[in-house]
Simulated scan of single mutants.
Amino acid sequence: MGKRANVDGDRLEFIPPQMPTLVEQPPQDEGWVHEAELDGYRTQIIIDKGGVRLYSKNGRDWTTKYWPIALAVELPCRAAILDGEVIVSGVRGAPDSPELEAAIWSEPNRLVFVAFDILHLDGRNLAPLPLLQRKQALRQLVGPGVGKIQYSEHFEGDALALFRAIEKIGPNGVISKRADSRYKGGPSKTWLKARCLRKPFSKF
Results as ranks from 00 to 15, higher is better:
1 M>V: 13
3 K>P: 10
6 N>M: 09
6 N>Q: 09
7 V>C: 09
8 D>F: 15
8 D>N: 12
8 D>V: 13
9 G>N: 10
12 L>R: 05
16 P>L: 07
16 P>K: 06
16 P>H: 06
17 P>V: 07
17 P>A: 13
21 T>K: 08
28 Q>Y: 08
30 E>L: 10
31 G>P: 03
32 W>K: 05
32 W>F: 10
32 W>V: 07
34 H>E: 05
35 E>S: 04
36 A>V: 12
37 E>Y: 06
45 I>Q: 00
47 I>W: 02
49 K>G: 14
51 G>C: 08
58 N>I: 10
61 D>M: 04
65 K>M: 03
66 Y>W: 04
68 P>I: 06
68 P>K: 06
71 L>M: 10
71 L>E: 15
72 A>T: 06
76 P>I: 11
77 C>Y: 07
80 A>E: 00
80 A>S: 01
81 I>M: 06
82 L>D: 00
82 L>C: 01
84 G>V: 03
86 V>S: 00
88 V>N: 02
91 V>I: 14
94 A>N: 14
94 A>K: 12
96 D>M: 08
97 S>D: 12
97 S>H: 13
102 A>S: 12
102 A>M: 09
103 A>H: 05
103 A>E: 04
105 W>H: 15
106 S>R: 15
107 E>A: 14
111 L>Q: 05
113 F>L: 03
113 F>R: 01
113 F>A: 02
114 V>Q: 00
115 A>D: 01
120 H>F: 03
121 L>Y: 01
121 L>I: 09
126 L>Y: 00
127 A>W: 00
132 L>W: 02
135 K>W: 04
137 A>D: 02
138 L>K: 00
143 G>S: 08
146 V>W: 11
148 K>H: 07
149 I>A: 01
153 E>C: 11
157 G>H: 12
158 D>E: 14
160 L>R: 08
162 L>S: 07
162 L>P: 02
162 L>K: 08
164 R>M: 08
164 R>Q: 12
165 A>Q: 13
165 A>H: 13
169 I>A: 11
173 G>M: 05
174 V>D: 01
177 K>W: 04
182 R>G: 13
185 G>R: 01
186 G>I: 08
189 K>P: 03
192 L>R: 07
192 L>H: 04
193 K>P: 05
193 K>N: 10
196 C>K: 10
197 L>Q: 14
201 F>V: 12
203 K>Q: 12
204 F>L: 09
